[in-house]
Each structure stands twice: as structure tokens, then as C-alpha cells.
Amino acid sequence: MEKNTWTTKLGLARMLRGGVIMDVVDADQARIAEEAGAAAVMALERVPAQIRADGGVARASDPAMIRSIQEAVTIPVMAKCRIGHTMEARILEALEVDFVDESEVLTPADPHHHIDKTAFDVPFVCGCTDLGEALRRIGEGAAMIRTKGEAGTGDISEAVRHLREVRSAIRRLQGMEPAQLFAEAKALAAPLDLVRSVAADGCLPVPQFAAGGIATPADAALCMSLGAEAVFVGSGIFLSSDPAKRARAIVEAVTHWQDPKRLAEISTGLGEAMRGTETSKLTAADQLAQRGH
């Protein structure tokens, strides 16, 4: 029996497809998320909108809160570490979280390097804003990619931008001759073998999920229509007026995104969405998606 192979890492990512991964800050929220049909939860001390409001350095969560969430639910539990913070990732691995998110939502620990994720047994998910960034993270060992969007805003526009970036770059690769892929790999600053695999398959070699700004069932369905295979919802659920109802609705919207009549029913009477912030009004320093490279 061989544990923690590339196949098992990719395997869990594939099992989460068509699902919703919800940010939760305590065991009660985790139970609400599981009851609503979340495919996994992301354990963190503050949701991105709170991190944004509080300022200061955002770090990995206290192991005690991560353990309390692991004890509260049976679905997979993910947790975030800072970009490049190998030791926070090692601590999360020691806690036996099911997935580590090397996340731009926390303050980056290394300005130049992301974690060498091939050196870990636990699988990683990383964010991207375009295809080159996605392939660099996969080259470092990420078993799942999520487009970054702009976390904690409740504004879907950056998620849409990043999904479109990835999709149009994939289409461009598919139209190229093999001889063009060398220069394209250089332009994307991405490993050639991964560029070739995308050109041949028309998709990333790992599941591609969406994150950042999803606040309504329609937002989640929009992400699915732009090529996302599942969604992460951070602040959008537990900063809304009726988290349990909204969580359930977003779960259903990801399954039934191709059925507008059903989406109309799902979207009815959910109460107030999170208030949110227009991304275009953020200063450059407040744009989390610019973190990492």
C-alpha cells in the first residue's frame, strides 16, 4: 500500500468537483456548512472580509481551532498557510488537514518563492490569476488550482476576469502548432511539459475551481459557466443574513448551474447578501490577488 501519491492527491481534488468549499471560523459554522451540503470546509480564524477590515499581518490559524473543526465534521477540512511559509504548511500537515491552501489571503512569507509542494504528503491548492501562474503552481506540486478572484469583497468581477484569462489562454494554446509551444512556455513562464499537456487536453492537468467574491447562487453558477469545476465561498456565506439558507442555495446552484428555472427558485428569499466592496475602489495594496507570482 502506497500512501500520498500524485494519484491520491489528485483523487481528493476530483472528489470535490461539483461541490462548494466554505470558509468557517468555528465548529458551529462548520456544522452548518456540512449540514448545508458543503463538500469541504476551510478552517480559518477570520474570513477574508474580516482580515481586510482588521489589517495587520494575517497568519495561519491556531491549531486548537483547526482541531475543533476536524472534530465537528466528517467532510474534508482544509486550512490556509502563508505563501512560501513552509513551516506553517508542515504544521498543517502534522495536524492532518486534508488539503493545504497556500493562500494570498494571508500575508505572504516569502516574496520570491512559493512552497515546494512536491516535498509534502498533504495535497495543496493554490490561487492563480492567469494560465502561467496556474502552471507554475502545478509545476511546484499543487493538486488543485483555484482562480483567485478578489477575496473578501463580495464582488465577482475579478473571479470572472481570472476565469476568462485562464480559459482564453487555454484556447489559444489549443490552436497552436507544436513548434509554437516553446516560445509560448517562455511567454507564460511555465514548464514546457505542462504547456504541452494543456495544449493537448484543453484543460488544466488538475481540477480548476473558482474563488474570490462569490456571494450569491448566481455568482456560483456564473463561475461554473466560465469553466470552474467547483467553488470556494469565503465571506459570502457567514457574513450574509441567513448563512444556512444561503449555503444550501449555493450548493444547489453549483449542481444545477445549467438550469435557470431552478436557479430562480434557488435564489428566492435568501435575505441580505454580504454588503461587499467594489474591487475597482480598492487601492493596489489592498488587492490580494496581486500577491504571489
Partner: peptide, 24 residues
């Protein structure tokens, strides 16, 4: 989740030679 969390997910071979991928 009888074998544990993701770190206990594994590849193996069954007694009849079937390749197994066990995820949580």
C-alpha cells in the same frame, strides 16, 4: 472514512489484481 483522513489515502492492489485507489 474508515482508514482516516486524506494522509491515509492510498494506492494498493487487491487480492485478484485489481488496482485500488482509496480516497478517504
Amino acid at each position: 472514512n474508515a482508514y482516516g483522513r486524506q494522509l491515509h489515502s492510498a494506492e494498493a492492489v487487491a487480492d485478484d489484481g485489481t488496482p485500488l485507489v482509496l480516497i478517504r
